[in-house]
Design a binder for these strands. Structure first.
Length: 1331
RNA sequence: GCGCGCGUAGCUCAGUUGGUUAGAGCGCCACCCUGAUAAGGUGGAGGUCCCAAGUUCGAAUCUUGGCGCGCGCACCA
């Protein structure tokens, strides 16, 4: 996809860390440098040298230092009172035991402090320590007088310090009161967020404020974005997979709503089906249908209906908790009467159009239980068993029915199906042979088998065959044979039947052609018993239409209970599998058994009764002629936007290609009843489209059954009137036979039909809800996991195609207009989610306990964390490994980073009095243009570069995010948002620290610093922009930010919720591709510089004299000039004194020419390797100058002449050996590694400062505590360095007194770059603090 | 067995139409910062791109065949 944010490498998100690009060169330091290096000192950033502004800052007369001094004095006084004899300067540091003891003392004391403050604050302690911004209502919190410790903002309930020292310190500073009252304009934000608690507050706000409803109201009349909720089965607890789908399903509607569309979200529940019945059976402790009927269908159905709602509360909880905005109060429910009637209408329409018919289906049948099993159930019951494997002779007969001495040999592992044999199948194009045991007498049996398998058979028989004849399968087709048993064969001459095409043929025991015959195993001749195999049944279905009359009927001598009927006397009344032995024995006796052995394979057993083998068995079933609509469904599919794309032609397309008629009916109890009534006399049927239509039938009877039940139990749901058993009782007068009744067929339907009818049935259409349906069909967007391919995705597409595609519905009651048939429908875009695996990479399973309950994640990390993990962690269609660790680890990268910036802003804005509401009277939508009316607001063009850059990045990101989100690519969009936050945190805030800390206020008053105010406006605007951009992804934290940053200061003048704002699309006026690219360059250079330092083992604390950069050819001159103008920035980042663009790069680098393979490849072809070598080996400088002069050079190569133009080559610069350098694709950065004694001294001083600061920290000093500092070292060099930088050290460490002693000292000795140093720190002014 | 998808760093995953030095996050190691601090930042190490053959000037990328994993459909006479 095109990216308008500039070249890839200039983009914010593409800042590849230099470690990949940079190859730090080893530096050979000169002897003196090497010597120095060992004793390196470290120093602060170069600009903080002896004469720099930091020193200046501490001089009298400036605003901030003065306040600081005052503050420190007070602090010190208080400390002195509190402390009784700290460690003394010049004295030995306290011995370890005492120190440890003191530390132990310090921490508890802090807790005591907190408790006391809490007590003083007299505010109740909430159950959860939740110092989070309040969300509703925004009430100003009174703040006590300044300087009173107990009234600090830090004393939030919960006891954690919320605002660090600065506010307190500032409160102590003597300065004029700010013009505005001191109430904070923003609620304090704690550094360590408690996301779960925050989310609970947000949820409360959404609930009480009716925010979801308001978000819809706001878009009333706007173009719709239609979303369909694929109904989850409430019959079971929600698990992490549902959290994923609910996250995605929330994301896009939220996004589209912010973008200006109306997206109503109607929830739904799938309530019918076998799982519900199984659940109820479990409760009742029963299994079989017979047991259900014994229990009573009526009470059973009642239990099913109740069972559906058992987990509803959990579902609603998790739906709300994860932030899925959907209307649960008006959810559609598939068992509701209006829903059922919609389904009835669809079925009646199909029936009236001849698309619903009765046939047989071969199912996996549990004979003992008398029920069919779903494929899922079958899959659970496979066991490896040894079955008999028999090779049976089927004697071929001539036209007169006489055996001709040759026999087909067929193989089967289910001998019990042989009595129902109906055909023998061969593959027409296969070679078959007629064989006989070699050397056998003339009368010996002759077998017909596939040539490829003849040897196998011979081996089994332990004989060798001689081939008598070779023929194709095609020549065998049409031949008649004798079935292995006479079960269905009448005595006398073989039966014939008339073919539709003329002539006649045997309706059974005939060789047929079939392409499922393979030579993988067996004999190449397949025994076909249509009653006991789906493929076999297909043969029968193919044969039947060929006959005009008297065609083949289904032969079946097995009863539904799995026993042979009397049609097969040998096994009559016995379970079929128990008869295998007798059947085999009989075959052998009659000379038909060619061979017998054991065959080990997997065979399904009943998962509930694992001793019961399943058998395939034909059951009467109702079908929908979907296969007639195969092409229409494919055409519809072709128009759907599938994500990932391969679903369209892959899994889903393939499934449509091999479409077979939809077996609709189920011989169960809890489902939508099939609305077909059959005449008891004629067997003619009609379909009923609604309950009203049924009641209008002449001679209606039986409705009183439900009425009586309702009378007996008024709480009975009216919806049950259209369910079994009540609906079965309703009969009416047959229009086909006078005096006869119409009775409903007993079946219910596949619950997938329910879900697939959802686009119209959720509205009760066409009986009602016509406007709703007209406005919300088709869906713009749906999303479910890949396991719905043959489920909801198919059921929707099939039903919609059959009803609304092609010629459309014939009859719509009441003149209802059918929806337009233009494809795609019923959904335009479908995101197919990957499967979710548990912690161990295995399928999630409750029994394995390999996943954490969603609630655990919510309580520990929050819903935003889970959402962000799902949305930003990987493309949605990949398999997701759901683990607590991954979720936890995804938090710091984005949520925490964003939170830190947010909290940074609030802390400093509070200190500096930045209050947007005080400066801006008409906030409007708080878009960039709306801010221009604010006092002290400067147009971006007048602000500093960093602000311009930040706002340019914000706009570019917004534009890119919108572009990605409109393409349903939230993964990429999330990446952009994450990169923006990275840039905000690691560049804008970091580079702006001094601006926020600098003198002046940001309250618009007389003390206001314009630059500081700019920084606040920029950061505030950026944070609000990010809150809006990220709102659909992480709706909670963004809401908290909006509430605090916008709604709190502005109150009702702005949107109360971030979800009631418009989504940012980027402000073209703010885009600045040049600046974005250049800032990326400077960050690159800084990064390379650090890599060069690291390569030379020169830490950043060691100041260096110079850094030079050699820019690559791809860098535009204007960019180079810009970079040069930013020398100070680079120096600051890299702690060097000077930065320049190298004037004589050849000192540091070598140039080489690389062919641009992408351009040269197609041009040169086979010459390329030679040209490449010539370019790389040749004199790069000469070649380059020739290229630049002439625009082209001709290379004479062994294979011919290659013309190379300037654009065909890339100049690569490589750092020469011996320099501290790092090279990236756009620049080489060289560090001056030589160290002067001055630099080393500076570095040493900095190192000592660091050591002292560490000591301060170890002593738990307030950072404002002044100290007495004693440093002792036997090293003259170190002492000299310390003396030289005495002022800097004292200033940095807040040392009132600094003593530098010769000798080893008596305390702990540190090693400062090879110099021993002992440090003694004591709080200044304490007892005995004088040395 | 058939179909679909997937095998890239210790882990989880990106990698656009084949192109020069294959990337990210986490983890690890080192460093920096110490006024976002129970935080934060930077750098580094780490890869036979599952294997093999082929196409091509050039393959992580395309083709074929293996091997392994996941899912779906069948379970095979």
């Amino acid at each position: 996809m095109p990216d308008d944010a500039g070249p890839a490498d200039a983009r914010l998100g593409d800042r590849r860390p230099a470690q990949r690009r940079a190859r730090a060169r080893d530096v050979q330091l000169r002897p003196v440098a090497g010597d120095l290096r060992r004793r390196l000192g470290r120093l602060v950033r170069g600009r903080l040298g002896a004469d720099d502004e930091r020193d200046g800052l501490l001089r009298e007369g400036r605003d901030r230092p003065a306040r600081l001094r005052e503050h420190r004095r007070r602090q010190g006084r208080r400390r002195r009172q509190r402390r009784r004899g700290g460690p003394l300067p010049g004295r030995p540091p306290p011995p370890p035991p005492r120190r440890a003891g003191r530390r132990r003392h310090l921490r508890p004391r802090r807790r005591d402090d907190r408790l006391q403050r809490r007590a003083r604050s007299r505010r109740p302690l909430p159950a959860r320590a939740g110092a989070v911004p309040r969300l509703h209502p925004p009430r100003p919190r009174p703040l006590g007088p300044h300087g009173r410790r107990g009234q600090q903002p830090a004393d939030r309930p919960g006891g954690r310090r919320v605002v660090p020292h600065r506010p307190h310190r500032r409160a102590l500073i003597a300065r004029p009161r700010p013009p505005r009252p001191p109430a904070p304009m923003f609620d304090p934000v704690r550094g360590k967020p408690d996301f779960p608690a925050l989310e609970q507050e947000v949820l409360g706000f959404w609930r009480s404020g009716g925010i979801y409803r308001k978000s819809l109201e706001r878009r009333r009349g706007a173009p719709r974005f239609v979303f369909y909720e694929g109904p989850p089965t409430a019959n079971g607890l929600p698990h992490p997979g549902h959290c994923l789908t609910r996250t995605i399903k929330d994301l896009y509607p939220r996004y589209r709503t912010m973008r200006g569309q109306l997206c109503e979200r109607k929830a739904g529940w799938d309530t019918h089906g076998l799982p519900v019945e199984v659940e109820v059976c479990k409760e009742l402790g029963i299994h079989s249908k017979a047991q259900i009927e014994a229990y009573g269908v009526e009470p059973f159905i009642h239990r099913c209906q109740e069972s559906v709602w058992r987990y509803m509360k959990e579902w609603e909880t998790i739906t709300e908790r994860i932030g899925f905005w959907i209307d649960l109060s008006e959810a559609y429910v598939t068992y509701r009467r209006s829903y059922v009637e919609s389904v009835w209408w669809a079925l009646a329409d199909l029936f009236d159009r001849g698309l619903l018919y009765r046939g047989h289906k071969i199912v996996w049948w549990w004979a003992q239980g008398g029920t069919a099993l779903s494929s899922g159930e079958v899959g659970q019951g496979y066991k490896e068993v040894a079955d008999p494997s028999v090779y049976v002779a089927l004697p071929l007969v001539d036209a007169a029915g006489r055996p001709d001495g040759r026999s087909l040999v067929a193989w089967t592992t289910t001998p019990w199906t042989l009595p129902s044999n109906q055909f023998a199948a061969v593959r027409p194009e296969l070679e078959y042979v007629v064989v006989r045991e070699a050397g056998a007498p003339d009368g010996a049996p002759q077998y017909v088998v596939a040539e490829a398998l003849a040897a196998d058979l011979a081996a089994k028989l332990k004989v060798s065959f001689e081939t008598l004849q070779t023929l194709t399968g095609g020549e065998l087709v049409g031949r008649d044979y004798l079935p292995p048993f006479d079960t269905f064969r009448p005595a006398g001459s073989p039966p014939r039947a008339t073919l539709a095409a003329g002539g006649d043929a045997a309706p059974a025991w005939r060789v047929v052609a079939a392409d499922f015959v393979t030579t993988d195993s067996g004999t190449g001749v397949v025994h076909v018993a249509p009653a006991f195999g789906e493929v076999d049944y297909g043969v029968l279905m193919a044969e039947q239409p060929r006959f005009a009359a008297g065609g083949p009927a289904l032969l079946n001598c097995v009863a539904p209970d799995g026993t042979f009927t009397d049609a097969f006397p040998m096994g009559s009344g016995r379970f079929v599998k128990d008869c295998d032995r007798d059947i085999t024995r009989d075959l052998r006796a009659r000379g038909l058994l060619v061979h017998q052995e054991q065959y080990v394979h997997d065979y399904p057993f009943c998962w509930r009764a694992d001793a019961d083998p399943l058998i395939q068995y034909p059951r009467a079933s109702w079908f929908i002629r979907t296969s007639q609509f195969r092409d229409a469904m494919l055409a519809n599919n072709a128009r759907i936007d599938w994500l990932p794309e391969h679903i369209k032609d892959g899994r889903f397309g393939n499934f449509l290609e091999t479409n077979v008629d939809w077996a609709l009916s189920r011989e169960r109890y809890w489902g939508t009843p099939l609305p077909i009534w059959v005449c008891e006399e004629t067997g003619r049927a009609e379909a009923v489209p609604s309950y009203a239509a049924l009641l209008a039938k002449p001679g209606i009877a039986g409705t009183e059954v439900f009425a009586r039940a309702k009378e007996a139990d008024p709480s009975l749901a009216d919806d049950l009137a259209v369910h079994k058993p009540y609906i079965d009782a309703v009969t009416y007068a047959s229009p086909f036979a006078a005096g006869r009744r119409m009775r409903r067929v007993p079946e219910v339907i596949d619950c997938w039909f329910d879900s697939g009818a959802m686009p119209f049935a959720q509205w009760g259409w066409p009986h009602e809800g016509r406007a709703d349906f007209a406005g919300q069909f088709p869906a713009d967007f749906i999303s479910e996991a890949i396991d719905q391919t043959r489920g909801w995705f198919y059921s929707q597409l099939a039903i919609s195609t059959l009803l609304f595609g092609g010629d459309g519905p014939r009859t719509l009651p009441g003149g209802v207009a059918p929806p337009p048939a233009a494809w795609p429908h019923p959904f335009r875009t479908c995101i197919v989610l990957g499967l979710m695996l548990g912690e161990d990479g295995q399928k999630m399973s409750k029994s394995k306990r390999n996943y954490k309950e969603p609630g655990v994640i919510f309580d520990a990390y929050g819903a935003d964390a889970l959402r962000w993990f799902f949305l930003a962690g990987q493309p949605p269609w990949t398999t997701i490994r759901y683990s607590e660790r991954s979720i936890r680890e995804s938090v710091p990268e984005f949520l925490l980073r964003l939170w830190n910036v947010y909290s940074f802003f609030v802390i400093y804005a509070t200190i500096d009095g930045f209050d947007p509401a005080a400066l801006l009277d008409a906030p409007g939508g708080l878009d960039h243009a709306d801010l221009s009316g604010a006092r002290g607001w400067r147009p971006v063009a007048e602000r500093c570069e960093l602000d311009r850059w930040m706002l340019a990045e914000l706009s570019a990101t917004a534009a890119a995010v919108v572009e990605r989100m409109d393409a349903f690519d939230h993964f990429a969009a999330a990446g952009r948002i994450s990169a923006l936050v990275e840039g905000l945190s690691n560049w804008f805030v970091r580079r702006s620290r001094d601006r926020f800390w600098g003198p002046g206020r940001a309250d618009g008053g007389p003390d206001t610093s314009p630059d500081k105010l700019d920084a606040y406006w920029t950061l505030w605007e950026t944070l609000l922009g990010i809150a809006r951009l990220a709102a659909p992804f992480v709706p909670f934290v963004t809401e908290a930010m909006w509430r605090n940053l916008a709604a709190r200061p502005f109150g009702a003048a702005v949107a109360e919720s971030v979800h009631l704002t418009d989504y940012p699309t980027g402000d073209a006026a703010l885009l600045d591709a040049d600046l974005v690219r250049r800032m990326a360059l400077v960050r690159d250079v800084a990064s390379l510089g650090r890599a060069a330092r690291a390569g030379a083992k020169l830490k950043v604390r060691q100041p260096l004299s110079k850094v030079e950069v050699i820019l690559g050819g791809g860098v535009e001159p204007a960019d180079a000039a810009w970079l040069e103008a930013h020398a100070e920035l680079v120096c600051d980042e890299l702690n060097v004194k000077h930065f320049e663009i190298c004037r004589e790069p050849d000192r540091y680098i070598t140039r080489s020419l690389l062919p641009d393979l992408k351009k040269l490849g197609p041009k040169l072809g086979k010459l390329l390797p030679q040209a490449r070598q010539a370019l790389e080996k040749g004199d790069a400088v000469a070649l380059l100058s020739a290229l630049e002069r002439d625009g082209r050079v001709e290379l004479a190569l062994p294979g011919g002449t290659a013309v190379v133009e300037r654009e065909d080559v890339i100049v690569r610069t490589t750092a020469r050996e011996g320099w501290a350098a790092a090279e990236g694709p756009r620049a080489v950065v060289v560090i001056a590694a030589e160290l002067t004694p001055q630099l080393v001294a500076e570095g040493l001083a900095r190192e000592v400062i660091h050591a002292v600061q560490t000591a301060r920290k170890n002593l738990d000093l307030e950072f404002t505590d002044r100290i007495d500092l004693a440093l002792a070292s036997p090293s003259a060099e170190l002492r000299a360095a310390l003396e030289e930088h005495r002022g800097g050290i004292a200033a940095e460490t807040l040392a009132e007194r600094l003593t530098i002693l010769d000798g080893s000292g008596t305390g702990e000795t540190l090693d400062v770059d090879g110099h021993p140093l002992s440090i003694a720190v004591a709080v200044a002014g304490g007892p005995g603090s004088r040395p």
